[in-house]
Every structure is written in C-alpha cells, then in structure tokens.
Amino acid sequence: MCGRYAASAGNDDLVEEFDVVLDRTGEPVRSVLKSPQDPPAGSPDHNVAPSKNVRVVLERVPKNGDGGAGDGDGSRDPVRQLRLLTWGLVPSWAKDPSVGARMTNARAETVLDKPAFRKAALARRAIVPADGWYEWQKSPTVKLDGKPRKQPFFIHRADGAPVALAGLYEFWKDPSLDPADPVSWLTTVTIVTTAAEPGLDRIHDRQPLVLEPEDWGRWLGPGTDDPDEVAALLAFATPGRFDAYPVGRAVGSSRVNGAGLLEPAPPEELQGVLDPATGEIVG
C-alpha cells in the first residue's frame, strides 16, 4: 500500500521536472478536510496523508478553465498540467465523497477489472510527484501487549531522482451545488500499487507503481487507451531502484511535518527491525 509520502519540491521545480505547460495549483479547489490543510495545499509537504489536496501531473484539454468533467472535449490538444486533487478516489457514480477514504490505493493487477477504476485506468491517468514514500514494517518482535512493533521506513530512489507515482483520477459532481460553482466538482486521485520487489518486501508486501521518465508520456497521454497497452504499463517493474531506511515514529501523526521526518532513526530507537537488504534483525 501507499498511505503516506513526502513531496518537498516547489511548484517551479515540478513544472520543470515534469515538463508541465500549465500550473493550475493556484485555482480554488474543493477540500474534504474538516480543518484547513497544513501545510497549505500546493506547498511542500513532508507528510502527505490521504484526504489532503495533493499536487498531481495530468494531461487534459483545458476548456473555459473549469475543473469539471467537461474540462476536455477533444477539440484541442491535451495540455500537461499541475493541479491539486484530493487523495482518495471518488467514482463519478458515488452517492457522496466519503467513499474516497477507502480508495487511496488501487491494485495494478485489478484496476482494469474494477468498476471504480477501469474507466480512469483507460482515460484518466496521472503522476503524483514525490521524494519517496513511508511504509511501516511489522517487526518479528512484539510489545508487552503482544502486538508486533511497527517501524516506519522512508523509501526513495537510490539515484536521488524524483519519484513518479502512478495515479488514476476521477471527477465527482455534487448534485447539491450550482454546476457553475468551481467547487461543485471534486477531482480525486488514487495511487496505483503493485507487489513489492525483493528487499522492499521485508518492509511491506506492496509498493507504489513508480514510472520511469521514458514512460511518463505514454502513461499521461489520453491517447493511450488500449487495454493491452495500459496493462503493459501497469505491469512495469524494475527491481533495485530504491533505498530504504528507518525513520522516527513521529511520521505516524499526520499533524507532524517538516524535513526532520526524513532523518534516519537513531540506532537506540530500533528494536527488532529487519534490515531490508539483508533480512538481519537490527536493534
């Protein structure tokens, strides 16, 4: 799974790295959060959690600047955009947006079969830029209450390059609001996951699907709508691209943020942690 990630790059850096033509992160968007987002949506965030408005790269045909389902009509060429989408996909047919809390991830093996994801997988694919993601390892040792210890890890590209998480997005229209109101539309995203590669599977059995730059165009392009071609992209796997190290448990609280979350956990905090590279118990 992927339930937390870090995205510390500025918008200008994302525009350059992902060849974005139109930065729309300054436009008003709907939020499902009960409290104001902190850090504010569209700014660097070292502890991105579900339900936040997150920065996403996608390609669509702009139309009248709105964010609704009529945003692209095929009359012009698609434009690569940087936008804010709510993390937790809400299908267009959902009765209310609460279903998004259960759809923060989509399994690569089944997205072309599941009604909630199939149309998005064929026509609405996105990239979620990140520095890396957090995952919690269940230790073979247990606490006094008999439950296994859980150690957060930060997983990132070994070459230091940005991480391009594969995503799918969808539009949901609130029937109670005026269609002309920009926030009557809720645009949401889910992160695609796949089986964890050797080594990372010692942390968790799933990991996000991370795309290479040479595949970004095909993944984002609305013209890539053949199920076999999409299935090939969903099956992409190249082991050995990532490093992982344990970090402090403070990341477990979505209210904690800052670059300090990426600092390696000191040795004295590690108890029964499995080294992903060797499988040896540390601490």
Rank of each mutant, 00 (worst) to 15 (best):
A7W: 10
S8F: 05
D12Y: 06
V15Y: 07
E16L: 09
D19Q: 14
V21F: 14
V21I: 14
L22F: 12
T25V: 01
Q37F: 01
N47H: 03
P50R: 00
N53M: 08
P62S: 08
K63Y: 14
G67P: 09
S75C: 03
R83D: 12
W87K: 00
W87H: 00
K95M: 11
R102A: 09
M103H: 08
D113C: 11
K114F: 07
A121V: 11
A121E: 04
I127H: 03
P129F: 00
W133G: 01
E135M: 03
Q137N: 08
T141A: 14
D145Q: 07
P148W: 08
Q151W: 06
I155C: 04
A158K: 14
G160H: 10
P162E: 07
A180H: 11
T190K: 00
D201S: 12
R202Y: 11
P208D: 10
P213A: 01
D215V: 13
A231N: 08
A232P: 08
P239R: 04
P239M: 10
R241Y: 09
G252V: 08
S253N: 10
L261Q: 04
E263K: 14
P264G: 06
E268M: 10
E269G: 04
L270T: 03
V273T: 12
D275L: 11
G279M: 05
E280I: 01
G283S: 02
